[in-house]
Simulated scan of single mutants.
Amino acid sequence: MNMVDSAQPFKTLLGPESDSQRTQYPYVTGTSVVGVKYKDGILMASDMGASYGSTLRYKSVERMKPIGKHSLLGASGEISDFQEILHYLDELILYDNMWDDGNSLGPKEVHSYLTRVMYNRRNKFNPFWNSLVLGGVKNGQKYLGTVSMIGVHFEDSHVATGFGNHLARPILREEWNENMSYEDGVKLLEKCMRVLLYRDRSAVNKIQIAKITEEGVTISRPYALKTFWEFNAFKNPTVGAEGSW
């Protein structure tokens, strides 16, 4: 009769936890997030779509969340990985609050933490399949940064993930300025989201815009952009391409 060796690590039906691999093939994903600095703080925009493969399956998924007292996080990519990152951040903020020393983590510290988490998971060949935008205001200092799924990170006055990095940032380079008002900042983000709606098949016309200032985070109710679909290129998109794929 064979006896189980008690020195061997316990294995579940799915194998040991060390062999567990997650999101090597992302399933439910969200598209672009766009963030800008403005006169009083940070503005961020995303739509509420989530694609199941290539199918736009979910249309009420929030992808921007407040983090602690001073930060706002937006994410594109795998939704379940974003939820796991939020759990990490909940533990981080709770641990920081337990010190009860009158201090709290600012956006720069949270962004630094996220870069370490993303790079650590990348080194294990088990990445969180997300691109993140982290913005915030602390002691009058505005901060806006981004980090990719492999840990590439930087700080800038305007950032975008996904297709927004190709389609929205040229608009921001032309029209953004740091002293713009809240109203002008919202108009600029709406213009970026409208272009993404026209050109990104994973985008939906249901967006949210969030702002963070010294007073805290405000996330708008979902709303639809005004669109115009009478351009000739939209009426006959294959003109001049007959016979091609």
Rank of each mutant, 00 (worst) to 15 (best):
M48C: 13
F231K: 11
V186Q: 10
A45C: 13
V33F: 02
F228L: 10
I93K: 08
H87P: 02
V159D: 03
K235E: 12
G145T: 04
S112K: 14
S60Q: 13
A241V: 09
K226C: 04
V4L: 14
E109M: 14
D47I: 00
P16M: 11
E175K: 15
Y113C: 08
F163R: 05
K39G: 01
S46D: 07
V137A: 04
D47Y: 02
E214R: 08
R57Q: 13
S148L: 13
D19H: 12
D40G: 00
I150M: 08
N130E: 12
T218F: 12
D101H: 11
I93E: 13
K39R: 15
V159I: 12
T12P: 05
Q83E: 15
G74C: 10
I209N: 05
Y58T: 09
K108L: 09
K138R: 14
G49A: 06
D19W: 12
R63D: 07
K226D: 14
E230M: 13
T115W: 01
E62V: 09
E183G: 01
A45S: 15
M118V: 05
M48G: 03
S148M: 11
E230W: 07
H87A: 13
H70D: 04
F163C: 05
W129L: 07
Q208P: 02
F82Q: 02
W129V: 01
S220R: 11
S244C: 09
M180W: 02
L196G: 00
A45N: 00
A45D: 03
M149C: 11
F163M: 15
G68C: 00
V195A: 12
E78P: 03
W245H: 09
L72I: 15
G140M: 08
Y25H: 14
Y95K: 14
V147I: 14
H166C: 07
D184Q: 05
Y25Q: 12
K142G: 00
G243I: 11
W176E: 07
N165M: 09
V61T: 14
M48R: 06
S112G: 10
V34M: 07
H87M: 14
Q208K: 15
Q8D: 11
D5Q: 12
P127Y: 09
S20G: 06
R199K: 14
L86H: 02
R122E: 08
K191W: 03
S80F: 00
G140D: 11
D90F: 06
T55Q: 09
F10P: 01
R63W: 06
M193E: 04
H158P: 01
